[in-house]
Every structure is written in structure tokens, then in C-alpha cells.
Design a protein around this nucleic acid. Structure first.
Lengths: 376, 376
DNA sequence: TTTAAAAACACGTACGTACATAAGTAAAAA
DNA sequence: TTTTTACTTATGTACGTACGTGTTTTTAAA
């Protein structure tokens, strides 16, 4: 993960010496000038590398004598924060708690943390940047040892970046779930939403549908990615894509916008034969609108949801939906933050889950009368 | 102490700004180039000074934006754990988080606590007594200042009572939500579930139904109370009540028991004309079973749910359901625990919300052919 | 008015030099 | 042999330059 700057490469080499046992605690490492010659970099660069390692506790310097390997690398992380004897505290910040999908993630996190004797401090932002700021401040002023965040409005610029930088300064590990801010490039656990949008759309294309519309929430990256997968499916299958086939909305204008556009579509003759939805909850809304127009699913129109929530199973039409491991993601997030907090894994790796399509009754092959002459 | 090197002098000046309050947490300090001019030193020197202060936790840098004052300077001088001056910590223990109904209560609690600068430590028990014990232990070992609990399996004897007694010993206020252990008689915020069960049943009786069955989860007091209301409605309207009209189940055997009994009913000739459900989620299950038997709602059978959740509104048949103020309960719980923690109200009063019936499309007057000769 | 490109700005990396200060070493003096 | 001195080597401080990368503001175009 560390960028491949020269000083980072020097740092890596030196830490390698230590971890491999080539240099033992208390032993002198090569002098700055020697390192300059060895790595072919300037003394400034060597000093930056060594200086960093001194701060991180790997080495210590003695003027006039040399630079030496530290005796206690174990205590690297413990130098800043005082030891909290019994069980640590992990912060969790999410956007919505009422959304039917988050409870399973939070439940995953909670179950693992409690089992480990950790406690969980919780806050949610309602997808409001001002509230996110407040939550981060509260978390920082508490003695949290790690943080799991679902970023707020991740598709637009986020002004709260410096709070995350400060977490790094204090050596408090954090990871992002569901989405992440590209500017920070933190460890993250996400679903490959682009692929999810793609397979949902591809499924419909393979059933013969051409007039497919997509409904996506675009104030978070999840929605934007699903939309991109939607569009890619058109391109890769050589199907003409018209911009008005995508309806994007934000949390605030969801109700009006989706209703309006959908009603417009189904009042005209240019009716789509399939609809890809941002999530299952939206799919329910769509089904409700369709019912009001006396349009039956899947006979007249196919509908695909996303999340494979319990809603997909309990509805009158069982929803075809894109599935991803919700609870596992929570557990995995908890596991990684715990091992990061315990210093077992200073640079947790990211995971990208590949979603899968669960086909149910809401999608069907296109009816012969609806087939349009291919325009390619 | 510090040698009078140039970079030490720059460091001193900058820390002065912070300690004197000239620069507040989160505020930007002068840029490196400005500092160069101000102190008449080179940029290298400024960078060394600022870099040191970043490592010491006074400042943090943001590439492209500037250098900012840190939010937690407390750690610089701190020797012991800071006495959590700002905002207290409230514990919340619930049974299930995935149940569609709890998120709104938790959201109510969270929104109020965050607005008050409080933080929320969360745990859930999965309705398991062993886990409840663990959660209570964790909460006690943390420095929580108040506790909101939804009791686990409140209808059977609870072996964790002494943890609550210990809370009282430590003068940590707590209150129970949704249910409460009668043995403790703590302040509680609940819905009058007995009345809820009563009005749901009364509604059906007034529509002419006599063969009414009730499905209730009886491992918590909520379900037991709703069932008692169900039975009282029969008695008060002078209608004979047969014990087999009630199907009681527990969390574990819900799926089999409900399905079995319901299938048995609808395979025989002794079909009920109305069903009272423990909650909306169960109502969905019931609707699914009915669909499989080609029984239509509300024409053939009326169904009443409980909770008035979003499920009631988005289904193909809009559910008649018993409504209670979910989010308000959370907010009210948070308000009361906060005033208890702040000593404004040492003995918070209990609230009992009276539920109301929301009539939608899933209930209808009994069809004439189904009317049975009254037996009174 | 909105949007997009360009410029200005701020921190990040990397090179160079010079001299200071502390520690160890070897040669010279006591 | 011991002590002093000078030299060498090591890190420490401090100056300079240049260009990279990301953010913010300004400007110009649509």
C-alpha cells in the first residue's frame, strides 16, 4: 500500500533487515552515508526514511555514534495511547440505520466484537455531512481504539477528510465499509457494485430485453458504480444506450423523481420492458407504481432488485435480486479492525466481494410482441 | 529544556498559538511559505518544526489544503485517562437489531443522544440470556453513565437480575423499553400491548368475524400481552373462545410451527375468517401461506398486523395494523435517561403508549356465507 | 447562471551544499 | 603508559533548488 517513493523503499529495506533478523535489537545499522551509496539516493532521502522509522519506534539515533535497532518493536503502537486494560472500544459510523440492509452489517460487526470482549460505540449520520463531522468529533474525543465507517455521500467531495487524517496521526486504525473516499484510499470492504449492476442488466439483455431503464441513487458511490455497470452492459452487448434510460435521484428527491419519471414512461407508448433498480426497497416502490398502472410483473415488465434482502423473498412476486454477503461483511470488518487494533496487522487489506444474481419470478423472457428491431 | 535551535523556536511559537487559543482545533495555521517569511528561516526548517508537531499530535497536514490544528491536544500533556469531560456515554442493549422495528427506536435514541453530544455504546443479545449477561458485563466494565435496555426473554425468569441491581448500587440510571422485568419494576417506556391486541381483535369482531385465530410469539412479554388482549376481546364481546384459536410460538420454532398449524387450518373445513398476527413480518408470512392456498385477502380472510411498519404500506394488500410511535419512544427514552444522568430527574417516570389501529385493505366485513350461527 | 479549464497555492518528494556537534580513533606529547 | 590533540566519522541543523501532486480559487467559455 505504501507509495513507491524512494524513502519508502529505503524504509522497507531497513524494516526487512530487522524483521528478518539480519539486524538484531541494539545493533548498529549502516551509517547514513553508507545507505546513500547503497541505495543511490541523497542523504536527505535517507534521513527522511530513518527519521520516520525512529518515530515509528524501529530505530533510535545517537549523535556521533550511529543509528541502532530498537529493543522493543512491540511497543510501537502503544507509545501514543495509554493502555486500556479490559477490552477495547470500536467506533462504528453508518449513514442510515433504518435502511433494511444495514442492520445485518451492524449485526455482523456487533456479534464479533462482543464475542471478543470489545465494545461498540455507535453513531449514524443520516447521510448528512454536517452530522458526519459531529460524529467524527465525538468519536475522536472518546477513546476509541478503532473505527469502522460507512462514508457519507461518498460520491461528492467530502470536507471531513482531515478527521480521517487525524485518526492516522494518532495511529487509530480505521476502515471503510460499503464505499470509500478515493482521496484517502483507506482499507475498505466493499461489494463490486459495478459488476452487480452489470450482471443485473446482462441478465435482462440475455432474456431479450432491449428497452431497459435503470433507477439509481447517485449521491453515493454505490449507486454510481451500479449505474456504470448498467451502462457497460449495454456497451459490451452492442446495444444502443440512450441517456434517458437512466433515472438518477438523490436521497432527498427520491419519491417525487422516481414516481414522476416512471409515470411519464408508463403513460406514453415508449414503455420499457425491464427495469433495473438501485435496491430492493426501490423495487417495491416500482412494483407499487406498476400495479397502479395495471402492469403485471413479469409478464409485461421484468424488474431486478439489489441486495437480496428479506423483502425479495416475501413479496407477492419474488424478486430477482443481486445478492452480496451482508453479515459476513460486517464480521470481516470487525475481524480486521480488531487485528489492526491489536497490532497484528498494521495494514489491513481491502476486500472486494463479487455479487451474484439470484433469479426469482420478477424477470422473464421478453414477449414476442415487445421485440424491437435491433438498431445496431 | 529545548535547545535554542531555529526549528525549536518555530515549534514553540506555534504551540503558543494553540495553547493560547489563538488557533482553535480544526483551524488552519499559516502556510509553510508564510511561516518562512514570518520567522526568516528556510522552508526546510519550517517543515522540520511542523513535522515534529505533527508527530507530537499538535497539528495535522493536508496536501494541497494546508496545515491544521489538531482536535485532541489533550493527549499531549495528559498523564492519566482524561475524565471524559465532554459528553457522557449511554449504553443501549437490545434483543434483535435485524428486526425491522428496532432500527427506528435505536434511531430515535441515537439522534437525541448525538444532538446532546452524548455517545452511544451498543450491544445486542439476540434474545439469548447468556449473551445478555455478557453484554451487561461489558457495559459495567465500560464507563457508561446510563443504560437503556430492551430485556431479553422478558416473560420467563431472568437470571441476570443482579447485574441490574449492581447498576443501582453504582447509581447508574437505567430504563427499560418495550418490555420490563416485573421483579425489578424499573422505569420503563412501553406500548400497552394488551390494549393493542384487544383493538385489533375488536376491529375484526365488529366486522362480523367470529372464527378468528391469533398467532403470538410468547417468549417475550409483548407477545403474551397482545395475546391476553386478544382473549379479552372475545370475553368482553360475549364470544366463545376456544384455546386452539391461539397459536403461540417462540423465536426458535416460528417457521415450522406457524406454517404447520396454518396449513392444517386451511386444509380442513374449519377455516378461520380472520387472523390476528403478532407483527407485520409474521403477517407477511401468513399472506404468503394464504397465497399458496389460493385464499385471497381480504375477500376470504381478514388479516391484522402489528407495528404499522413500512411493510404494511408497501405490500400488494395494504395491511391493517396496530400503530405505535416507534421513533418517539426512542427519543423519549433518550431524553429521560439523559435527564436522569444529569441528575435532573432521579426517578424517571414510566410511559405507557396507547396504540392505535390503522385500517387499510387487509380487513373487510365477513361474507354472508361465512356467517356462523351465534352460539351464545 | 452554470460549467469547465486554467492559474495559484499548499504540501510532498528529492536533489544539492555547508557547517555544527558528538563520539570514537589514532597519532603525538607528557 | 597515560594524556592530550588532531583527525575521522557519525548524526544534527540549516540553507538552497527543483519539480510532483492535490486543493482551492479564479477566469473564461458555454
Amino acid at each position: 500500500m505504501a507509495q513507491k517513493t524512494k524513502y519508502n523503499m529505503v524504509k522497507e529495506k531497513i524494516t526487512d533487515w530487522i524483521t528478518s533478523g539480519k539486524v538484531k535489537p541494539g545493533e548498529k545499522i549502516h551509517s547514513e552515508n553508507e545507505l546513500v551509496k547503497m541505495f543511490g539516493v541523497s542523504r536527505h532521502t535517507v534521513r527522511q526514511a530513518v527519521g520516520d522509522l525512529v518515530h515509528e519506534g524501529w530505530l533510535y539515533r545517537e549523535q556521533g555514534a550511529g543509528t541502532f535497532c530498537s529493543f522493543r518493536q512491540e511497543e510501537n503502537e502503544q507509545t501514543v495511547l495509554p493502555a486500556q486494560t479490559n477490552g477495547k472500544n470500536i467506533g462504528v459510523i453508518t449513514t442510515y440505520i433504518s435502511d433494511y440492509i444495514f442492520p445485518s452489517i451492524i449485526r455482523g460487526i456487533e456479534s464479533y466484537l462482543t464475542a471478543q470482549g470489545y465494545s461498540l460505540t455507535f453513531a449514524c449520520t443520516d447521510n448528512d455531512i454536517e452530522k458526519e463531522k459531529q460524529c467524527l468529533q465525538t468519536m475522536l474525543s472518546r477513546n476509541i481504539d478503532g473505527l469502522i465507517v460507512e462514508p457519507t455521500k461518498s460520491s461528492i467531495y467530502n470536507p471531513n477528510i482531515h478527521y480521517y487524517l487525524e485518526l492516522e496521526q494518532h495511529n487509530i486504525p480505521y476502515l471503510m465499509i460499503n464505499q470509500f473516499y478515493p482521496q484517502l484510499a483507506p482499507p475498505h470492504i466493499v461489494v463490486n457494485d459495478e459488476h452487480g449492476g452489470y450482471i443485473a442488466t446482462e441478465h435482462l439483455i440475455k432474456l431479450g430485453h432491449r428497452k431497459i431503464i435503470g433507477l439509481f441513487k447517485t449521491d453515493d458511490l454505490q449507486g454510481v458504480n451500479r449505474m456504470q455497470g448498467f451502462i457497460r452492459a449495454f456497451r459490451e452487448h452492442g446495444i444502443t444506450f440512450f441517456p434517458d434510460m437512466v433515472i438518477s435521484y438523490s436521497t432527498e428527491d427520491m419519491n417525487e423523481k422516481v414516481n414522476d419519471r416512471l409515470n411519464k414512461f408508463y403513460s406514453s407508448d415508449d414503455r420499457p420492458t425491464a427495469i433495473v433498480c438501485y435496491n430492493d426497497q426501490l423495487a417495491l416502490m416500482v412494483l407499487d407504481v406498476l400495479r397502479n398502472h395495471q402492469i403485471s410483473v413479469p409478464e409485461d415488465v421484468s424488474v431486478v432488485g439489489y441486495d437480496d434482502s428479506f423483502l425479495a423473498e416475501t413479496f407477492e412476486v419474488k424478486l430477482t435480486s443481486v445478492a452480496h454477503p451482508k453479515m459476513e461483511m460486517g464480521i470481516e470488518a470487525a475481524k480486521r479492525i480488531v487485528s489492526a487494533v491489536e497490532g497484528k496487522d498494521n495494514n489491513p487489506q481491502s476486500i472486494i466481494y463479487e455479487p451474484e444474481l439470484v433469479v426469482r419470478n420478477s424477470t422473464a423472457p421478453i414477449k414476442s410482441k415487445d421485440i424491437v428491431i435491433s438498431q445496431e
